[in-house]
């Protein structure tokens, strides 16, 4: 969860529509730069990409063929332009592994990955708010201390460790109630296989709730210590009204940027978690594409993941700027 950090980009002179438009345009610009970087790394690094792909034993002829197939003999700008227009029109070439169009390979996998991420997010957000608020409300109780301790452990754990422990507990002889491998056959919708989804979703949800719940707890405690809550007390309002009308909305608003970051991280957590459970999504596709040097698939997967990741990051930035301008 290392990308969850406080964001700093304060809009100058308040928040306005034009600021938002500028921020979004900047976002598009950054995404373009991302694509340039991705392109440069995969296609223009020093050394012969075709040779890297084919390995040491390939003949010079094979290498020359591949160079032509990849368009490596043209100028970088032309190559990039060709690649970018291809990406924007859904023409991302075909897999070097089996010749299938890249779109056909990653399309279903995108669906699988996003289904996994979205189901987790839908669970994370409400659970984190309830757990965080409850923990803050019971501050310093045994429950609260346990939650803080466990959540602090989870922020430090790699996702594969959590996943593996869940497999050891639920999918082996200990309990043996759930499948430890989530192999969803091609063509099936992931939600047709709920049992296969339980463990991957649980892994992502656990990690998200532990992180976000803790932030919600902190911002709820902040809100309860704020001057406006003191003022509400001095006005003689009831404890319930102070809690739900005065403290809670501000606490939730303060955790919104973090929620968006959790969304971003969930998208990438998908990579490792998918691999743990052999879940057929973008993450497993990236890993196998790296292993087989399947360049077009690799580019496409990374571009999709990076874009989704950046969009949520951007959303977090915008939300926290809005929060600060209040």
């Amino acid at each position: 969860m290392s990308s969850l950090m406080t964001r700093v980009s304060v809009p100058r002179g308040g928040l306005s529509f034009s600021w938002l438009v500028r921020r979004l345009l900047l976002g598009v610009f950054v995404l373009l730069l991302v694509s340039v970087l991705l392109f440069l790394v995969t296609q223009a690094l020093p050394g012969d990409v075709a040779r890297i792909i084919l390995g040491k034993d390939a003949t010079a002829e094979q290498v020359a063929d591949l160079r032509q197939q990849l368009g490596l003999d043209r100028s970088l700008v032309v190559q990039y332009w060709h690649w970018l227009t291809g990406v924007l029109t859904g023409e991302m070439g075909s897999s070097l592994q089996n010749g299938e169009p890249v779109v056909d390979i990653i399309g279903p996998r995108m669906l699988d990955s996003f289904a996994l991420g979205l189901i987790s997010l839908v669970l994370i957000l409400p659970i984190a708010v309830v757990v965080g608020v409850f923990s803050a409300h019971q501050r310093d109780s045994a429950w609260d201390k346990a939650f803080v301790a466990v959540s602090s452990l989870f922020t430090a754990l790699p996702a594969f460790v959590v996943g593996m422990l869940l497999i050891a507990l639920f999918a082996t002889s200990v309990l043996g109630v759930l499948p430890g491998v989530s192999n969803i056959p091609p063509g099936d919708m992931p939600w047709w296989h709920p049992a296969e989804l339980v463990l991957p979703v649980t892994t992502l949800t656990l990690m998200g709730v532990m992180y976000l719940g803790r932030l919600v707890r902190a911002s709820f405690i902040d809100a309860m210590n704020s001057e406006y809550v003191q003022m509400a007390t001095l006005k003689g309002l009831s404890g319930r009204r102070i809690l739900f009308r005065h403290a809670l909305p501000n606490a939730v608003a303060a955790s919104l940027p973090a929620a968006s970051l959790v969304a971003a991280v969930t998208i990438t957590g998908v990579v490792v978690v998918e691999y743990v459970y052999s879940y057929p999504g973008l993450g497993t596709a990236v890993v196998s594409a790296v292993n087989s040097h399947d360049l077009p698939v690799l580019q496409a997967c990374i571009l999709v993941l990076a874009t989704a990741y950046y969009v949520f990051n951007l959303l977090a930035d915008i939300l926290s700027a809005m929060g600060r301008s209040r």
């Binding site: 990308s3 610009f29 991302v34 970087l37 890297i52 790296v290 040097h293 690799l298 990374i302 990076a306």
Partner: peptide, 25 residues
């Protein structure tokens, strides 16, 4: 500087490493 950091930040770190490892060994 910060826009450059934004670009780097849009690669989730595992993906970032995989990208280079796949090219550089």
């Amino acid at each position: 500087l910060m826009r450059a950091m934004d670009v780097l930040l849009s690669f989730p770190e595992i993906i970032f490493v995989l990208l280079f490892v796949s090219m550089l060994g």
